[in-house]
């Protein structure tokens, strides 16, 4: 338990460091996350990348704590055939196969786009959630998109693929900025819960004791800070709690998540779910999703 929290905090530190765009291209010597994390990996421990990414070693050394690193086909990172819109690119991570047959549970999922100026989009600490995450990110260029999935035995299971993209996903103003109405709807939340018992067959009420698919979407510009005269401003955390206040899942979120961020997770169906999102301006967007 202690180890899990430590890993979560280290991940947050790494995420915070990588949110500063310059650090991502300076190199590991100048990257405080890599330098200060006692668990950070030596580059020699990082296995060669089957995707051949020029940034793999750097990101792996900075983000992955010690433990085995496996490129694992059980980590499914499902992407569309093309990036039709580089500002809103859907990514589905499904690592449920890792937990089959009583294998170690997944503790954490880091969603990474190697060549983005803000490479880590989401750092998801599962607590009681299933190892599944669907969201949309920005793409600043052709890049690998990966999930770094850590199980409780410390092993990192890595899956991902390249996606081609037009430039500018992180460096063009969001639609609501261009339209000028971003403040009118800031933090408006939409969402609902469905039964997750049947996998993709989602009809029917949420059965008690089973798993529930929870979808949450917020209106927020998710400014990256890479657009002239618009400072970074984004939802930086999301926490889900059950009716008794126990944490079901939490995420550290970066500005490379798409404008009007949307998340799909699978959590135990224990009744109403309280959500609390906090943005970098300190605003809290909270509410309840009823089953």
């Amino acid at each position: 338990m202690v180890r899990r929290i430590a890993a979560g905090l280290a991940g947050k530190a790494a995420l915070a460091a990588l949110c500063v765009p310059a650090l991502a291209i300076v190199g590991p010597a100048a990257c405080p996350a890599a330098a200060q994390d006692p668990q950070a990996l030596d580059r020699a421990q990082v296995p060669a990348d089957p995707l051949g990414s020029p940034m793999w070693e750097h990101h792996a050394a900075g983000l992955l704590t010690s433990g085995r690193i496996l490129f694992d086909p059980r980590v499914a990172v499902r992407l569309p055939l093309l990036a039709e819109n580089q500002h809103v690119f859907p990514v589905t991570v499904d690592a449920r196969a890792l937990e089959a047959n009583g294998r170690p549970k997944v503790r954490r999922i880091v969603l990474l786009a190697d060549l983005n100026p803000i490479p880590v989009a989401v750092d998801f600490t599962l607590h009681r959630a299933a190892p599944f995450l669907a969201t949309r990110i920005k793409l600043d260029q052709r890049t690998p998109v990966r999930a770094l999935v850590q199980t409780e035995d410390g092993t990192w299971h890595v899956g991902g693929q390249w996606i081609d993209a037009a430039g500018g996903g992180c460096s063009a103003p969001p639609v609501s900025r261009a339209r000028g109405d971003w403040a009118d709807h800031l933090g408006e939340a939409r969402g609902a819960m469905w039964s997750a018992a049947e996998g993709p067959q989602l009809d029917g009420p949420v059965p008690p004791g089973g798993m529930a698919r929870l979808r949450l979407a917020f209106r927020h510009p998710m400014d990256t800070g890479l657009v002239e005269n618009i400072p970074p401003y984004f939802i930086e955390s999301l926490k889900l709690r059950d009716a008794g206040g126990a944490v079901l899942a939490e995420m550290a979120i970066a500005a490379s998540v798409a404008e009007d961020p949307a998340f799909t997770v699978i959590v135990p169906a224990t009744g109403a779910v309280r959500f609390e999102a906090v943005d970098t301006g300190g605003l809290v967007f909270a509410g309840t999703v009823q089953p």
Partner: peptide, 29 residues
Amino acid sequence: RGLDMGEAGEVPIPARFSGMKAARYELQR
């Protein structure tokens, strides 16, 4: 039904469109 965008692009395409070129590609667009 609670699907996210990526999942919506993966739904089955009916057999009556099986002769249609670029169907999955245009669905995802």
